[in-house]
Amino acid sequence: MGVGITVERLNAFYGKTQALFDINIKVEANHATALIGPSGCGKSTFIRCLNRMHETIPDTSVNGIVRIGDFSVYNGTSATQLRRRVGMVFQKPNPFPTMSIYDNVAAGLKLNGFTNRKKLDEIVEKSLNNSALWDEVKDSLHKKSGASLSGGQQQRLCIARALAVQPQVLLMDEPCSALDPISTGKIEELIFQLKEQYTIVIVTHNMQQAARVAEFTGFFLLGKMIEFDKTEKVFTNPSDKRTEDYVTGRFG
């Protein structure tokens, strides 16, 4: 089951440039939370701070408190251990090009020393089922490479890959920006279903998408979180003028 996320006074930097300023947010367990804002506003940086992906870029730094469930993200625990609880889906589908579909899904478990073959088969099937890809690939699990699928299928493969590790939180960084409308629709439907089991944080540049899938929405501007509330409230009756301008399309 999903767990909640608490963020307090989070600041992030690229070298000396500050990208996030004092972000505070409480993400509810088993709901979808969308982060919107113009490009360069820090929403991707923010989501990458939640699983400490930010620090894989050289010369970056973070300070503040992030708690995922009972897990303190920036306090003594290893990033690797954290990321096993927090799955991530990226902007561009990035299946491992040299691996088969099966191996792609099993990668997270296999590479972390999970060897029970029967259990592995089960999890691969379940994960592909949960990402609505099973029927399309079940006959070529071992024959086809992950890179040979279509863009939308690749992204669902990446979702299955993330689910196979059985995380509590699923972070999605503009998961549909490289996909066609039909694939986008499939992924959105999937997000809708996944949030019964997982806490989902999704970054999107598409306001309609945020409105369709998320119960809560945060609006980022220039590295600051301007407003965070129920999605309906943010879109219909925002309390900040800048949010109002953005959702009505007056800038950006």
Binding site: M53, M88, P95, F96, P97, L111, N112
Partner: peptide
């Protein structure tokens, strides 16, 4: 880089990512 990030995101350690993902690719 996105291939490395995919592995990191799965909670695969850096050395394992380098050997089993980056080098293998």
């Amino acid at each position: 880089q996105s291939i490395r990030e995919a592995a990191y995101g799965l909670g695969v350690s850096r050395w394992r990512t380098t050997l089993s993902i980056t080098l293998r690719t």
